[in-house]
Amino acid sequence: MKPRPSATASEPTRRIALWDWPLIAIRLIALAALLLLCVSAYYLVAPFTARNPVPRHFLRWVGTIAGLRVTVLGTPPITGTFFLANHVSWLDIPALAGATGTAFIAHDGLADFAPLRWLCALNDTVFIARHRRSTVSDQVEQIRKALKETGALTIFPEGTTSAGTQLLPFKSSLLSAIGTEDDSVTAQPVWIDYGHDAAEIAWVGDEPGLDNALRILARRKAVRVTLHLLPPLAGEDRRDRKAMARSAQRAIEEASRKD
């Protein structure tokens, strides 16, 4: 997750036409109604469960309203999974959360907008400051605690979104949260694949987030995404955090070449 787009790619050329606005309005009204319903359900359920199931269903329906259609392939995750996924769009979050129930590690820039921080907190989001090297050890401890509490966490090691056609280098610093010999935590790469639609869906360059969201909400054709849950890392692939970053990136690149 990211507060602002910073990857480089060609800008989407499609603009919102006048006749697109009724569909956008319908979807925005549906999202607002869903939010009101799920917030009420969240606080009703909260006293009776350690891991509230409402955010997972909320995010799944956010994706559905936005036109997202998710297919899941590969190795089913288990409790205590740390997902390492490529990052293309804000749609990655409802796709992954709806399919697996995962919480996310997000850049602390998202926390600057209070309503968004509140929504993220409902899904147990862990906010980190990637640019503050002095706080990495504290962030690692925060991530370890969150993994125990949530059962699954996702990090986007690229640190920002890409155009969906090739990966940016995976950063390794926060992977120290996964002990190389800790069998209770599974490190599992995930390839988020939008197929031929990746270039249109991707949030890259200088496009404002609101413009990207409106473009997707104006889209009449379904957004089809396949989540490839790849085999968990093991052995030498978990030797240290840098090996984990390299191995996860290689696994996703190899899966994309086979498709």
Rank of each mutant, 00 (worst) to 15 (best):
D237H: 13
D193V: 05
T180R: 14
P189A: 12
W191S: 13
D182K: 07
S172N: 11
S173K: 09
R215F: 02
A198Q: 06
A177W: 04
Q166D: 15
I178N: 02
G205Y: 01
R220S: 14
L210E: 06
A243F: 08
L230T: 10
L175A: 12
E181W: 04
P208V: 02
L174T: 14
L214D: 03
W203A: 07
I216T: 14
F170G: 10
V225H: 03
L167R: 08
D206S: 14
R239E: 15
G195F: 04
P208C: 03
E200Q: 14
A187F: 04
D183Q: 14
G205P: 07
D193E: 05
R224W: 00
L175S: 12
L210I: 15
V223H: 10
S184M: 02
A234S: 14
A213N: 00
E207F: 00
I216V: 15
I192A: 02
L233F: 03
L229D: 09
P208D: 04
L230Y: 12
E200F: 02
E207K: 05
D206R: 12
Q188K: 11
G209K: 00
V223R: 02
L214A: 07
L217H: 01
S176Y: 00
R241L: 05
A218T: 07
T226S: 05
L174M: 11
D240W: 09
I178D: 00
P169N: 09
V204F: 00
A243D: 12
A213T: 13
R239I: 06
V204R: 08
K171H: 15
V225L: 08
I192R: 02
A198W: 00
N212A: 15
Y194F: 13
A202R: 05
A177T: 09
D237S: 14
K242P: 01
L227H: 06
E181D: 15
L214Q: 04
P189H: 09
G179V: 12
L175W: 08
R220W: 11
W191Q: 01
V225M: 08
P208K: 01
I178M: 13
D237N: 12
D206M: 00
A213I: 12
P189K: 09
R239H: 15
D197W: 00
I216K: 05
I192K: 06
F170A: 07
P169T: 10
D182F: 03
D237Q: 15
T180E: 12
D183W: 00
A202C: 05
P231V: 06
D211K: 08
A177E: 09
V185I: 15
A199V: 10
R219Y: 03
K171E: 07
P232R: 05
A187N: 04
P189V: 13
L227K: 09
R241G: 12
G179Y: 13
L217R: 04
D182R: 09
F170R: 05
R238G: 08
L227W: 03
D211F: 01
L167G: 10
G235I: 10
T186D: 01
A218E: 06
Q188S: 08
D183A: 15
I192S: 04
